[in-house]
């Protein structure tokens, strides 16, 4: 257990990963970086991308798509606060595609400059991000 760090991934609604890891790859806003045991205490903002967790048990290793968030590394513990997150293996491409089409449709119906537009644009970006990440993983 000597070379491990504890890793937690939480979204506002729930904790989606908690466990021991040997390596955590994070999509920092200014560039991706990896964290191993003994990392400096750090608070970083995260962009959209993939969080890669190499767990101690290889079967528990996982990759998550996240859209923005923060990471705090302190005392060999990594806490990832993700605004939105989903495990790559849980992405249902057909489902996401259908949702994206629906959002696109709604977006067309909203006039330029409406406050709701930003919200749906955000949704669209998130769904597209899931699609590209899922296809990259295949």
């Amino acid at each position: 257990m000597a070379d491990n760090l504890s890793c937690t991934v939480v979204t506002p609604a729930q904790t989606i990963y908690a466990g021991e890891a040997t390596y955590v790859g994070l999509p920092g806003e200014v560039g991706s970086f990896g964290v191993m045991k003994g990392h400096e205490p750090l608070v970083s903002t995260l962009g959209s991308g993939i969080v890669k967790i190499d767990a101690v048990q290889a079967s528990e290793s996982a990759r998550y798509v996240i859209a923005g968030g923060y990471a705090e590394i302190d005392d060999n513990a990594v806490i990832v606060l993700a605004d939105k997150a989903v495990a790559i293996k849980d992405i249902n491409v057909a489902d996401v595609r259908a949702q994206a089409a629906k959002v696109e449709e709604t977006l067309k119906g909203i006039p330029e400059g409406d406050a709701d537009r930003a919200y749906y644009q955000d949704q669209k970006n998130w769904l597209n991000l899931q699609l590209t990440s899922a296809s990259a993983a295949e």
């Binding site: 205490p41 970083s44 923060y70």
Partner: peptide, 28 residues
């Protein structure tokens, strides 16, 4: 431990992302 943290990209940038999210969390 406040002083020992590094901030990426820098403190102001982290703060300006964190504060809006904090408001969101409070509402939720």
């Amino acid at each position: 431990p406040a002083a020992t943290f590094d901030f990426e990209p820098n403190e102001a940038a982290v703060l300006s992302k964190l504060l809006p999210a904090y408001v969101e969390t409070m509402v939720y």
